[in-house]
Nucleic acid binder design. Sequence first.
DNA 1: AAGCTTGCTAAACAATCGTTTAGTTAGCTA
DNA 2: TAGCTAACTAAACGATTGTTTAGCAAGCTT
Lengths: 196, 196
Amino acid sequence: MAATIAKRQANRLPALLDAAAAHFAERGYHATTMRDIAQEAGVTPGAVYFHVPTKQALLLAVYAQGVDRIIGRFEKALEGQRDPNIRLRCAIMAHLEAILDASAYARVIVRVLPEDIPEATNELKLQRERYESRLRSLLAEVDLPAGRDPKLARLMLIGALNWTPVWYRKSAGSLDGIVNEYLASFGLSPTPLAGK
Amino acid sequence: MAATIAKRQANRLPALLDAAAAHFAERGYHATTMRDIAQEAGVTPGAVYFHVPTKQALLLAVYAQGVDRIIGRFEKALEGQRDPNIRLRCAIMAHLEAILDASAYARVIVRVLPEDIPEATNELKLQRERYESRLRSLLAEVDLPAGRDPKLARLMLIGALNWTPVWYRKSAGSLDGIVNEYLASFGLSPTPLAGK
DNA sequence: AAGCTTGCTAAACAATCGTTTAGTTAGCTA
DNA sequence: TAGCTAACTAAACGATTGTTTAGCAAGCTT
C-alpha cells in the first residue's frame, strides 16, 4: 500500500529540480534546455510539463530551494555559537561550502543573476533578499573597525563570496585560508577557530 | 577623396562592436541574438557576417576591447601617482568607473564569464588574465597588514569589484564611499584623497 | 469489470536561433 | 563607359528552442 503509493505518485519533481539545478548551476539558465533537464532526470521532455508549467517556474523553484539550503547550512553552522566574530566566521564558511561543494541549488543563486531573466527579476531578487537580510542581521552583531560602513561591508563580503566560484579550484587546499582572509578584511583575527 | 574613402569603407565594425557590447553587457551572451545586434547597429543580420565570422568572434572582439579599456583607464588613473596606497585607490576607482558608468565593453568582462561559452573559455580567460596580472603587480606594491595573503586579498578585491554592478544603483551617491570601504578592507585609511 | 485519474511517451508545433546564399547598389579603376 | 570590388539587402536555410497534443498504460475507486 505504502509501496504502491510510493510508486504511483513517484514524486519525480525533486529529481527534476535536481537535474535543473545541476544544469542551471553549471551552464547557466539560457544555455540549459528543457531537453537537457529531461534527459538528466530520465524522462521525456513532455513529462517535465506534467510537473512544472514553464522553464521559468523551474528556475524559480530551484532558486527558492537554493536560498533555503544556504540559509539552512547557515543556521546549522551558527547553532550554539555565541561569539559574534565566530558566528560570522561560521556563516562565511557555511556559505562557501554551500556554493563550492555541497549544493548545485546554492550555486544557482550565485551563477544565475536576477537580471538574466527580465520577466522573473523581481521574484528572483526577493528570494535573494531572504538570504541577504539574514547576513545583514549577522553582521550587525559584529564590532566593525572604526569607519567601516556595515552596509557596504556586507555588500563587499557578498561580492567576494559569490565571486569565489569563478576562481576557486577544489584541489587548492582547504577553505580555511579563504575564510580567514575574508575575516581579516573586517579586521578580525583569524585565530579563533576554537569554536568548533 | 578622403570623404569618399570614409564613406566607402565606412568602417561599420566599431559600430557593430558597440552594439554587441551594449547587448552582451545588459542581457548576457546567450540572451543576445545576432538580430538584436544588427538592429541596434542599423543593419541587416546578414551584414554582420560581412564583418565578423561568428557570434563567438564578436564576443571575443568585445572582450578584448573591454580588457583594453579597463586597463586603459587604469593606467591613466595611475599616471604620476607614486604612493602605493594612492595608486591602489586610483585603480579601484578606475575599475568601478569603468564597469559602472563608462563602458559597456568593460561591463561585458564582468557580466559574461568565460565558463558561459565553453568553446571560448580559454580565450576569454586569457583576456581576463591580462587585467588581473596588472592588478596583481599593483597590489604587490602595497604594504598589507600582517597575516594577509596577497593572492587571496586580490581575488577578494576582484570579487567585490565585479559583484558591484549587481547591487549598485547610480542614484545612490558617489563612488567614493565604495572605494573607501574596499580600501578599508585592506587596512588602508580612506583619507588620502589628496592625490587628485 | 467499468471508469477515472495519474504519470507518462512519441510526435509534432510554431517560433526563433545562428548562419548562408543569391542578388543588388554604389563607388573606384582603367 | 565597362568592369571590378566592397558593402550591403532580402530571403531563406536547417537546427534547435519552449511548449503542446494525442494517446496509452497502470493503478485506484466503485
